[in-house]
Design a protein around this nucleic acid. Structure first.
Length: 449
RNA sequence: GUCCCGUUCGUCUAGUCCGGUCCAGGACACCGGAUUUUCAUUCCGGCAACAGGGGUUCGAAUCCCCUACGGGACGCCA
């Protein structure tokens, strides 16, 4: 794929540099993803650096959640706080000596001065040129000096960020567009340190689904963990996130990670902000679910069902496996599984009384017919049940739908679900007999559902 | 307020760099129809966009300018 000279000549080193001051959110995940994709595309290095200079707001709990979220999304890092690497330490809170050194360099060279106990950087007031792979060259003039070391001795974001990028040999800074305006500060810092700034790539922001502004960390739907808790497939979320601000430029949307890595590049990133659309995410997730090999689907679905219904109801899994098998192509998401097929695991479904009365009034005779046939020696297979229904309908001068709908409701308590014949066959003759009899008021029982 | 970035269907986008093949393509959502075997499946169809105005040109979604709107940055937060 079209690599630039730049990419061929110098090793690509990119980093994701989050602050562990809150939960891992979608915007951060997308930034991490784009960095990771670019590193993998170029066979470069993906570095994880923790920007925890604000000790009071940073916490280990957030840090672990962050690492966990990255792993869940399949974004592995080559250098970082836990795995180490040649440019460590990878937590800013442990890099104090490095910042001290750079601070002295700036002070000695007259690029910085002390005031009110803090160290300030002297800006040049000349417009600086920011080389951005997404936006092209951007000219911006920095007007005010800014703090690089606070009066308590800790480095400011701009300073620590630049020092680290420089000392870690970062070749490309891929980050949210909210940093574009900051980049002039960073370029000036690089120059004052006698270094060439890296290539920048400011990626568009993710806006809220509706209303003004970017997606904030606090609103619902903005945290990676929410989707994880709702049993979205991580591959689906990752794929969807790729589509926010980037596309493969053909009409593909659902595509294997390997293909995305192959065609991902910075020049293909969009310039305008994108709104997060949970409906589209749900669609991508469903496509992933449908394409899962049966065994993998079961591995994901069974725990969700157990969690929703209680493990004791689900049993050893053989019956559950047969139930889930007929749900895979129809269920919209794993989180809906308990509602979608939970009734399979109850003695009898819960019938909504109003609907039950209506169905009884309209279709009791046909249900009785069907029940009588099943009490006979009807073969209890999808095909056998289907021909039974078709025959009954033809004999009675009805449409098959006149049997299908009441049967579905009587046997499942729902008006939607897997195909009726597969549903009946999976329930099995005994359960179907019991459900039909109970529905028709034939047996008064005190079954414990 | 100052500066920076952006603007194609409701949403995500293709097309823009190298103007004609675009009365603008795909997807989600929505609406409708079909499968005379059924729903939240499948298939088919429909709705719907180049922000506005100038310019350059034989020709502009594509190039230039202005306006409007949206977003972001202006912290001893990151």
């Amino acid at each position: 794929m079209g690599r630039t000279m730049d990419e061929q000549n110098s090793p690509v080193r990119v980093r994701f540099a989050p602050s562990p001051t809150g939960h891992f959110h979608i915007g951060g995940a997308r930034t991490a993803l784009f960095n990771w994709l670019y590193a993998r595309h170029c066979a470069g290095t993906f570095i994880l650096r923790i920007e925890d200079t604000d000790r009071s707001r940073s916490s280990d709990e957030f840090l672990h959640a962050l690492l966990d979220g990255l792993r869940w999304l399949g974004l592995d890092w080559d250098e970082g706080p836990d795995v180490g690497g040649p440019c460590g330490p990878y937590r800013q809170s442990e890099r104090g000596a490095i910042y001290d050194g750079y601070r002295h360099r700036l002070l000695d060279a007259g690029h910085a001065y002390e005031r009110d106990g803090a160290v300030w950087f002297r800006v040049s007031s000349e417009p600086v040129r920011i080389l951005d792979a997404v936006h092209g060259p951007v000219l911006r003039r920095e007007e005010k000096d800014f703090v690089i070391v606070r009066s308590d001795g800790s480095p400011s974001f701009h300073f620590a960020n630049v020092v680290d990028d420089l000392s870690m040999g970062i070749s490309h800074v891929i980050r949210g567009e909210d940093h574009l305006s900051n980049s002039s500060k960073h370029v000036e810092l690089y120059r004052a340190l006698g270094a060439e700034p890296p290539r920048f790539a400011h990626i568009p922001l993710i806006l809220k689904t509706s209303g003004p502004g970017k997606m904030s960390k606090r609103e619902t739907g903005s945290l990676v963990d929410e989707y994880r808790a709702r049993h979205f497939l991580s591959g689906a979320l990752r794929n969807y996130l790729c589509l926010l601000g980037w596309s493969p430029k053909d009409d593909r949307e659902i595509l294997p990670l390997a293909d995305i890595i192959q065609c991902f590049d910075l020049a293909g990133i969009n310039r305008s902000n994108a709104r997060f659309d949970e409906k589209k995410l749900a669609h991508v997730n469903r496509e992933y679910l449908r394409r899962l090999p049966r065994e993998e689907f079961l591995a994901h679905a069974l725990p969700v069902l157990r969690e929703g219904m209680g493990p004791e109801r689900i049993g050893d899994g053989a019956y559950a496996a047969s139930v889930l098998a007929i749900c895979q192509e129809k269920v919209r998401g794993l989180e809906e599984l308990p509602d979608f097929c939970g009734h399979f695991f109850l003695a009898v479904p819960c019938w909504e009384e109003g609907l039950r009365a209506k169905v009884l009034e309209e279709s009791a005779l046909r249900l009785e017919e069907f029940l009588a046939a099943v009490e006979g020696d009807c073969p209890f297979t999808p095909a056998g049940l289907e021909s039974l229904v078709v025959e009954l309908a033809r004999a009675g001068g009805h449409g098959t739908g006149d049997y299908v709908h009441p049967l579905r409701f009587a046997c499942s308590g729902q008006s939607v679900g897997p195909g009726l014949y597969a549903l009946l066959a999976t329930l099995g003759r005994e359960r179907v007999l019991l459900r039909l009899r109970r529905f028709l008021g034939r047996e008064i029982q005190d079954l414990d559902p």
